[in-house]
Amino acid sequence: MGRTKQKVRYKLNSGGIKSLSDEEIKVILRAADELIGTGGRSMLAKILKGSKDKKVLKYGLNKCPSYGYYCELTREEITKRIDWMIKSGYLKIEYSGRLPVLIFTEKGWEIERETYANELLNKLTEILEDQDYSFVYELKDRNRGMILLLIEKIKNTKNARFIPLLKEWKRIEYKKVQTELQKAINYLMEVGF
């Protein structure tokens, strides 16, 4: 009979870190988003360090906007910041099988949802120039709360140039999101410049 494998143990050590700046919190959460539910503290530290580790490159984690943010720090110093984020309630650890993986807390996801929606808004604003709206296919099946926030942010721009992009996006979405996209189209047609 085979032995059942033990869960991998971990111990949090924030090393006396008392606080992080809002920017650092956003950067760490943005990097964590790349591996929520699939990776742990050490992989997150590698992303933030800017590691050339095989797994980081294989999974395209080097394309994360937070990649290399803490390039001047050691991985141990970065891990202390990650542990502070866990102790402060922005991230938590759950087990996936025997491995500890990172999960957003509600507080952490609220911040990351805002950060990511802003990042996507910037991306969509850039592609208005090319009129190549194929990027909208990447938005399907994303977190609905974040997508609805993104649509609201598009409405708030009052930029009618988003209308063709929204129409293209609407063609591929589920009913609930289609409804919100149509509301945004109607609004921009009314007030857009």
Rank of each mutant, 00 (worst) to 15 (best):
5 K>N: 03
6 Q>H: 07
6 Q>A: 12
8 V>G: 00
13 N>L: 08
16 G>D: 06
17 I>N: 06
27 V>E: 05
27 V>C: 09
29 L>P: 10
34 E>I: 02
36 I>K: 04
37 G>W: 06
39 G>K: 07
40 G>F: 05
42 S>C: 02
44 L>E: 01
48 L>V: 04
49 K>D: 01
52 K>L: 08
60 G>I: 07
60 G>W: 04
65 P>N: 01
66 S>Q: 00
70 Y>V: 01
70 Y>W: 03
70 Y>R: 02
72 E>I: 00
73 L>Y: 12
78 I>C: 05
79 T>Q: 01
79 T>I: 03
81 R>E: 01
86 I>F: 07
87 K>C: 09
89 G>E: 07
90 Y>V: 08
92 K>R: 12
92 K>Y: 04
99 L>I: 09
101 V>P: 11
103 I>R: 15
108 G>H: 10
112 E>F: 10
112 E>V: 08
114 E>L: 06
115 T>C: 08
115 T>Q: 08
116 Y>R: 13
117 A>F: 06
118 N>R: 13
119 E>V: 05
121 L>K: 14
122 N>H: 10
122 N>K: 14
124 L>V: 12
128 L>P: 05
132 D>Y: 12
133 Y>V: 10
138 E>Y: 12
140 K>Q: 06
140 K>A: 07
146 M>K: 09
146 M>Q: 15
148 L>C: 00
149 L>V: 06
149 L>M: 13
155 K>Y: 05
157 T>F: 09
157 T>M: 08
164 P>M: 14
172 I>C: 03
173 E>W: 12
177 V>I: 14
178 Q>Y: 09
179 T>H: 11
180 E>M: 12
181 L>F: 06
184 A>Y: 11
188 L>R: 04
192 G>L: 06
